[in-house]
Every structure is written in C-alpha cells, then in structure tokens.
Amino acid sequence: MSSAGHGYAGAPLAGPNPGARSETWLWIAQRASAALLGLCVLVHLVTIIYAVRHGLSGEAILARTRGNGVALAFYMLYVLAIAVHAPIGLRTLCHEWLGWRSASLNWFIAALALALFAFGLRAGWAVFLAPV
C-alpha cells in the first residue's frame, strides 16, 4: 500500500472536507435554536396552562393577544426558532434513515423551513390583528 492518498507519514490526505463549514454552521444554528426553544416552549406551556386553568374562552384569549406587541414579538421568535430547528433535524433524519443525501434534500428542507416560518407568521399575525 502506498503512503500517498492515505496520509501516512504526514503525506497529504485525500483532499479537503467540502461540507465542513456548512455542516458546522447548521449544527450551530440547531444548537442555538434549541436553546431558544427551551425558553420559548416553557413560556408557551405556562401560557397554555394559565389559559386552561383560568377557563379563558377563545374571545378572552384574543382580547389579550389583539394588538399585543410583546406577544407578537415572542411568537415571531418562537416561530423562527422552530423554522430553523426542525428542518435541520429532519435533514439529518433523511440522511440517516432514508439515505437521501442529494442536493434535492437541501431544497426540500429549505422549502420546509420557509413554509414553517410563513405558516407560523400567519398564525401569530392573525391573533395580533384579530377582529373585535
């Protein structure tokens, strides 16, 4: 076996690792969004439990969210964290479970991220602008 191509004895290795930077940034994005989700899910659950335990009606909830900039900002952040976190995890699942590793997967994942963000924005915006 020749040393060339195997990197033995300090010989050059089989070329650079092209995905290193992008994969690392995806990993950072997923970890950062996970940290954000940890906080957002907690606030969201407390909100749900509060609403249920106080028997708030749909109208009573909308009365609190209507024109509420803080609630809108919070849910925008929540939606952003979901739109970043979930597609990256799903991409890894597609790699490992389906063996789907082509460029088409990245397009699918990007579309999924945009869809999650758009639907989330629409929902947050709807309760912000809810008609009286």
Binding site: L13, P16, N17, G19, A20, R21, E23, W27, H95
Partner: peptide, 11 residues
C-alpha cells in the same frame, strides 16, 4: 478541525 467536521465527522 476542518477534517473532523461534518456528517462524516464529529457532528
């Protein structure tokens, strides 16, 4: 570090 990053490496 570049060699061990990515989905064939530490991640």
């Amino acid at each position: 570090l570049a060699a061990v990053a990515g989905d064939a490496g530490c991640h």
